[in-house]
Amino acid sequence: MATFNVPVYDTPVTQNRQFQPYSMTQPVQNPNFTQQSPNSPAVGFYTSTPQNINSVMQPMVNPYSDTNCKLDDLTQKVNMIFDKMSTLDELSNKISTFDRAVQNLFKTVEKVSKRVDDVEQGMNFINEKFEDAKKDVSDVKGVCAGIREDADSANDAIFRLQKDLDELYTRHIDLQTRSMRENLIFTGIPMHDKFEESETTEKVLEKFMTEQLKLCRIAEYDRAHRFGKEYVERYPDGSVKFMTKPIVCRFRNFKEREFVRKAARELRDTHFGISEQFPKEVNDKRKELWPHFQEARRQRKKAFFKRDRLFIDGVEYCPSKKDEEKRDDDVPG
């Protein structure tokens, strides 16, 4: 019996293609004929020529070709499934990587959440301290307001006290000036000796009134004495000419004082001098005004002092700030 080699294609089941023998002795089911017996020909089956054999074998080969085509389709589908499985593997790897990233992200979020909790606790603590500080500030503001009110009251009291002190100071200076109203100071009169007594000073002053002032009588006075710093007058060779101290004399009344003061014109061009006695504050003010007094006299203006006030041509002179600065510049350092 003749056999045919049927090709077997490479499929997932068979990896290598090969020919498998097919035996013609196997019975073939064909609906087109019915075999009666091995010796009698069947209806519709032709055995006389090779053409008849080919025509008979054609239906037998076609089922295997269809099977191979189906196997090829199945192979392609399996290959597609494998490709998709590879894609799924890659996707699985990516999902794993993503899962690890998500896990890391969860850990990071947990750390951040913990830090946020710590920050919230810190902020709550700060808020509590801030509220406490705010309350303290409010209390301090209240205390400061009270202190400010007390300070304002104290400033008002100090202002009133300062005003009262200024008035008292002015009254004190006025009282001192009035108490010295009958006093005159004599300068340049030699001392009888270094430890001159008051009685001796009074006799020296009486002699000075008659000899130097050329008074017709000795003015009535209460007492006289020397005071202040000792001054030594010397000759050109350095020897002592005489020693002197100022003499203050209190006269019986203002008329007696003016009687002696008006006679001071007799002392012009001498080393003697007569002046009114004033408190130190008045003398300091008069010293400041003295250059302006001299300047007015050089300009032949009528100038005179009234206590610590200077009048020039009947108008009180008040030195300007510019004049004060110029005077300070003229003073040697």
Rank of each mutant, 00 (worst) to 15 (best):
D150Y: 07
L165I: 00
C216Q: 14
E220K: 15
A154S: 05
H192A: 13
D164H: 04
L213T: 05
A133N: 11
I147P: 01
T177Y: 04
L165A: 02
L175E: 12
E202H: 08
Q162D: 14
E149T: 14
I147M: 11
R226K: 06
K163L: 15
R226S: 06
E197F: 10
A145T: 10
H225I: 03
L175G: 03
I218H: 01
M180I: 01
Q212R: 15
E196H: 03
H225W: 07
E128T: 13
N183G: 00
M209R: 00
K214P: 00
K135W: 07
E131C: 02
F208G: 00
G142L: 08
D174K: 15
E220Q: 11
I173L: 10
K135A: 01
R217P: 00
V137F: 13
D174W: 08
S153R: 13
Y221V: 08
D222Y: 10
N155C: 06
M191N: 12
E182T: 14
A157G: 07
E182R: 15
A151D: 11
A224V: 04
T187N: 10
C144K: 13
V143L: 12
E128R: 10
I173C: 10
V137I: 14
E196Y: 14
L205K: 10
F195W: 02
N183R: 01
I218Y: 02
R223G: 02
E211D: 14
I173S: 02
V143K: 12
A145L: 00
L215W: 02
D139V: 10
N155Y: 08
D174N: 15
V140F: 03
I147Y: 09
A145R: 07
A219L: 01
D156S: 14
H225L: 04
A219I: 03
S138T: 04
F130P: 00
A157W: 02
E131L: 06
A154L: 10
M191H: 05
T177D: 01
K203N: 15
L205C: 04
D174V: 07
L168C: 02
S138K: 12
D222L: 14
Q162I: 04
K194P: 00
T177A: 04
R217K: 11
D193H: 12
P190A: 08
M180Y: 03
D193M: 03
A224L: 08
S138Q: 09
L215T: 09
I185S: 02
N183F: 01
